[in-house]
Design a protein around this nucleic acid. Structure first.
Lengths: 188, 188
DNA sequence: CAAAATATGTCAACATGGCTGACATAAATG
DNA sequence: CATTTATGTCAGCCATGTTGACATATTTTG
């Protein structure tokens, strides 16, 4: 987005108008005022957030779909295909397409389950881990910059806000997933 | 995502391990530890955030692309096609497809520019405004719930965090866009 | 004024990554 | 042994992004 400079008319604007509307939507008689700022900031922030990895990925002939698969396999080594489908919320056919490419190109390997030999447990290869970390590094740079610009405690605040934005019935599962993956990470 | 319950092994986990890793990535010798929690929470939060509108849109035969167009036209009445292309960062061919459907079905109208008659200035119809507000209302419900669960000041904290996550060179433009659209909104 | 630049639209072709439906195989399970 | 489960695969469709080439109307410029 090179320069945003919309030429729409601003019909009645007090010159010294505040940069933001009322801090909280006034629950006047009708519907509450939408949180336009949060809605739009989330759009632009998320776009930039996934944009960094996208650049790297496109040079490898990969897309966002590959990123998601690689990310979650890296974070949850030994996960079942069914688990991944559940997290990504896509069909096995869609997953199959990108997973096959990642396997064929040596980023992910599948091992037969020890207990249940029908399962194909997923692991990243060193090559896959390196790419996953590279992409996470780009996103971490952005997050680090943001936290650096704002005060301390921003990490906690961001975590709480984002958690609260998740569907109530998914929230526990997501938190468990993150916590368990943190434990699964190789401890230094 | 019906139930996240990944069966990956957690190799070495202290039983009383904290729910989150170090609050700040330890800048040890090598690369800093990625902010896994923020990366994943952003993924899940954004997915749910756009999920609500998606449901409504799919019943109308529309997708996320239509939502984005309708949203920005509603927020910036009278904007030029070129402005919209700049904001959405897509090609005019991609925009043309969804825009045509929105126009044909009476959600958006195009008016010849008064000063420059080459321009096709974009406006939502009452029908378009209603849909845009309905979708924004769904997202606002989610945001309101999140802000309600957390303390006051969360709105400001979220705004600052999200703003800081935007590319430095886009940030000003985005803030200007939001501020100007707020002024353009019909003042009650 | 004629030429060039601009704003927009359109046709055609292609890529990615979703989807459904149908079917196949191997292994676990009752 | 019959059924269920975990996974894979083939075929085709859809939405939405891309490039490249042109067309048209209008404004701007030399």
């Amino acid at each position: 987005m090179a320069d945003i400079n919309v030429s729409a008319k601003a019909p009645h604007s007090a010159p010294g108008a505040p940069a933001h509307p009322a801090p909280t939507p006034a629950p006047a008689g009708g519907a509450p005022e939408p949180f336009w700022d949060i809605i739009e900031l989330l759009f632009f922030a998320y776009r930039d957030f996934v944009g960094d990895p996208d650049e790297v990925l496109s040079k490898l002939g990969f897309g966002r779909a590959h990123h998601r698969v690689l990310h979650f396999v890296n974070r949850n080594p030994g996960m079942k295909v069914a688990d991944l489908l559940d997290i990504l919320n896509i069909t096995k056919q869609s997953l199959g397409r990108v997973l096959k490419q990642l396997v064929d190109q040596g980023y992910v390997i599948q091992k037969e389950g020890a207990a249940d030999r029908r399962q194909r447990l997923l692991y990243v290869t060193p090559k896959g881990e390196a790419l996953s970390l590279k992409l996470a590094g780009l996103q971490t740079q952005r997050i680090t910059r943001a936290f650096g610009e704002l005060g301390p405690g921003t990490h906690e605040a961001a975590r709480r806000f984002l958690t609260a934005m998740i569907d109530g019935d998914n929230r526990e599962g997501v938190l468990r997933l993150i916590a368990r993956a943190d434990r699964a990470a190789k401890p230094k």
